[in-house]
Amino acid sequence: MSEFLRNYLTVAIFGGVAVALLAGVLGLGSLIRPTRRQEGKYKNYESGVDPVGDTWSQSQIRYYIFALMFVIFDVEAVFIFPWATRVEEYGVFGLVEMLVFIAVLTLGLVYAWRKGVLRWI
């Protein structure tokens, strides 16, 4: 196995350690803790009264728009990083290119701003 893949194997091992740690602790807990089923104990908490209606209720559309905005800017960050590591090699050419790129994205933010999308009502 190449050295590169080995390093990612470490990532997988750490994920495994996390699962093993939690499974171990929860397993230990399951040996110790009591389980006493009672009427009402397994209802959802809704300030002490019985839950009303469907608990998986609908939510505001604004969350969706913010998620869309997030994707746009996160992808932007993906494009900025490779340039950031090689700023000196690309020099003025790379800098101007990146300024144009950032300016275009800022225009997007300004557009969303003017449209009132960023207002959280």
Binding site: G29, S30, R33, T35, Y42, K43
Partner: peptide, 9 residues
């Protein structure tokens, strides 16, 4: 560790 583990129905 000693607390009961409750998963809502």
């Amino acid at each position: 560790l000693q607390k009961e583990d409750v998963v809502p129905d």
